[in-house]
Amino acid sequence: MLDETEADRPRKRALGAELVIPVGALVFTLYYFYTILESPWTAQASAFFIGTILIVLVLIFIGLTFRWVAKGEGDWSFHTLFEPHDYVKIRLGLLALTVGYIAVISFLGFTITTFLFLVLAMLLLNRGRRAKLSLTLAAILSVGGYLLFIVAFDTNFPEGPFEFLMNGIL
């Protein structure tokens, strides 16, 4: 546990985390330049113009970051991305469920995948509590979504066994 003086001390800026977007922007811009090296000028003009300014700004930011670290105003940590720590596992779990949702929806279709995602995500976020409410809400929302979007609006949502079955019945 932190002692009182340590807890009261103002926290340093997590400059490692603040650098993620500028460094990502730099890498992306360089990749962009690489893809247009042999392109006609019409493909290059605005990208080189905007990209060059972006690179200059990113380099200034990186330079300033070194200065802030040297002055002790910040460190190279990434803690702001992972705070509060109690939620890291939950957030990663939710991310994994989201990736699963995207991967599975083309096979299982909208209704079943949405139902499964909603139940699991609600249980995860409620830390296993309120299971009945989660199940009921997930069922209402997924079937309601099916009726509203697929049946009423005739929207082309990903279809799977449930939608095929209902198409056969209706």
Binding site: T98, Y101, M122, L137, G145
Partner: peptide, 13 residues
């Protein structure tokens, strides 16, 4: 805990 999953699933679709 209920709102976030609904936002994610319905907006992704």
């Amino acid at each position: 805990a209920f709102m976030a999953p609904v936002i994610i699933s319905f907006t992704l679709v």
